[in-house]
Measured scan of single mutants.
Amino acid sequence: PEEVRRLVEELYRKGVSPEQVKKILKKQGIDEREIEKVLRRIG
């Protein structure tokens, strides 16, 4: 979803590592598979 992409990109631009991005967003209840999809697209 758009909102997940925005959150991931925001953290990524701040220099947060992909592993940390995953941890942070998982705590917020976001599906890990969604996060990984976005990270793959960015990375």
Rank of each mutant, 00 (worst) to 15 (best):
I42C: 13
P1W: 13
S17R: 12
L11V: 02
D31H: 05
R6L: 11
V38M: 05
V21H: 00
E10D: 11
R5Q: 15
R13A: 08
V8H: 01
I24K: 05
I42R: 01
I42P: 15
V16I: 11
V38N: 04
I24L: 09
I30E: 02
K37H: 07
K37Q: 12
I42G: 06
K22N: 03
R41F: 15
E2L: 07
R13F: 14
Q28E: 08
I30Y: 14
L39W: 01
V4G: 01
L7P: 00
R5G: 12
V4M: 09
E2A: 10
R40F: 14
V16T: 08
E34D: 07
Q28T: 08
V16P: 01
V21T: 08
K37Y: 08
K14L: 10
E34R: 03
E19S: 13
D31K: 06
Y12L: 15
E9M: 14
E10W: 07
Y12I: 14
E19W: 14
G15W: 03
K14F: 07
E36Q: 04
I24N: 03
S17W: 08
Q20T: 11
R13M: 09
K22D: 01
L25H: 00
K26L: 12
E36T: 04
L25Y: 00
L11I: 03
L39A: 01
E2I: 09
Q28I: 12
K26F: 06
V8D: 00
L39G: 01
L25V: 02
K26N: 04
G43V: 15
E10R: 08
I35S: 01
R6G: 07
K22L: 13
E9V: 14
E2W: 09
R33E: 14
L25D: 00
P18R: 14
V4H: 02
K23N: 10
V16F: 10
L7N: 03
K14Q: 10
V21N: 00
E2Q: 10
R41G: 15
P18V: 10
E34P: 00
G15L: 04
G29A: 03
K22F: 12
E19Q: 13
E34C: 03
K26E: 07
E36A: 04
K23T: 11
V38F: 04
